[in-house]
Design a protein around this nucleic acid. Structure first.
Lengths: 230, 230
DNA sequence: ACCTGAACACCGTTCAAGT
DNA sequence: ACCTGAACACCGTTCAAGT
């Protein structure tokens, strides 16, 4: 009955799109989706606008620069990472949040190098940091050890996720590189790379990701041991 | 006496520049220098050309795309990383090369996210990989454990170096963020971040880099222990 | 108020032309 | 052969103008 209802009813094909007004959130969702499929290299405001079906300049009404869009996208990803539970011991809780972080970065491969490098961290980012630090402190770690633990765990998690996100060009192409060079030259020049590649990485069951928990547990156990001599 | 000698002698101010013909190596050196001072964000072929005193298109004669330039720059950095010695035990040798890698990435902060993400690794890159893998194998690690060790050490080293390279906007600005928000609001919302920041990070002696050796040694010791159950 | 197209100052790269 | 300027197809962003 209202004019709004009337308007929405006019269009047939486009009505679904048209009723969806542009909002900050809708823009950021579309931005994350676009980056997920195109990667950050090809992520441009102009393409984002086309994906949303609006003129590029329209976006500037809700987010005032590309940097602000990227900030918002990083916040979306932080929102997807499970906060450490307050009911578990610190090691279990932190372990779970690290696995959750890797899973989120697996869904959004463009995000790994951006998570810790935004000049102005948003509330989801800060809230996440606070929960992790709080969890470590409750676990009995001193401030010094908390700082160490935080730095090394995040370096590892983000470093690993980033490495993983660029892998298709690093393992798969290893065969290509070997193919481009003369096979026997490659073997002579880089015998250990060749061995590892042929006898392990190329084998059916291999998954680079398996190393994640291996390394994570080394760090967690090491931190645990360090609590004693704190 | 030769015409070449004659030519070189003509100019007075510019002769030093002019005699230095453009070469692949000279371009790459200038590229690394430019990225060191400007960062990768501002690194453009056009600016590189101006720095070299040539027309932009001239560069394409020696390197056929920006990607190829970046590949070359990464190779330069790999060349600066100390290879693991063959005379030391694996732990000492690998430890040294990890410290050397961090030092190199400290000199070239733009490089961390590029080292392991080039589609086509160059000879310095491959040679480096080969030496590290060889060192681990000689140390008695199985192929499986070598793969784990390699993956987690590099994730940590590159992850940490990257984190470190973006730090000025992450620690310094923490004070700014707190200043922008109401101080008491910040303290109420993020009490653990505030505590860590005030009682540790802001203190005179604090250096984020101290966590590097802490984490590195946890990983090395953990790998060492894993050799037994291999 | 919300949305827009034209324009500006940049990119990387191609091309045709200079020596 | 080496080097070049003009031009092309893109960027992010500003601006003045539409409703």
């Amino acid at each position: 009955m209202s004019t709004r209802q009337g308007k929405a009813g006019i269009g047939t094909k486009k009505s679904r799109e048209l009723t969806r007004e542009l909002t900050r959130e809708r823009i950021l969702k579309a931005a994350v989706d676009l980056a997920d499929v195109s990667g950050m290299e090809d992520f441009t405001i102009r393409k984002l606008a086309t994906a949303l079906g609006v003129a590029p300049m329209n976006i500037y009404h809700y987010l005032s620069s590309k940097d602000e869009i990227v900030d918002g996208m990083v916040e979306v990803v932080f929102g997807e990472i499970e906060l450490p539970s307050e009911d578990e011991d610190w090691k279990t809780a932190i372990r779970r949040r690290c696995l959750s972080a890797r899973a989120a970065l697996g869904r959004h491969p463009w995000a790994a190098p951006l998570m810790e490098s935004r000049p102005v961290p948003g509330p989801a980012n800060l809230g996440h940091h606070d929960a992790v630090i709080g969890c470590l402190r409750r676990g009995g770690l001193s401030i010094e050890l908390t700082a160490h633990a935080y730095a090394i765990l995040d370096s590892f998690v983000y470093g690993f996720a980033f490495e993983e996100s660029t892998l298709p060009s690093g393992d798969k192409d290893m065969a290509d590189i070997a193919a481009e060079m003369d096979q026997s030259d490659f073997l002579a020049e880089y015998p250990h790379v060749a061995e590892l590649s042929q006898e392990h990485v190329m084998k059916p069951g291999y998954d680079f990701g398996d190393s994640f928990e291996f390394g994570l547990d080394l760090l967690l156990e090491g931190i645990d041991r360090a609590i004693a001599c704190d």
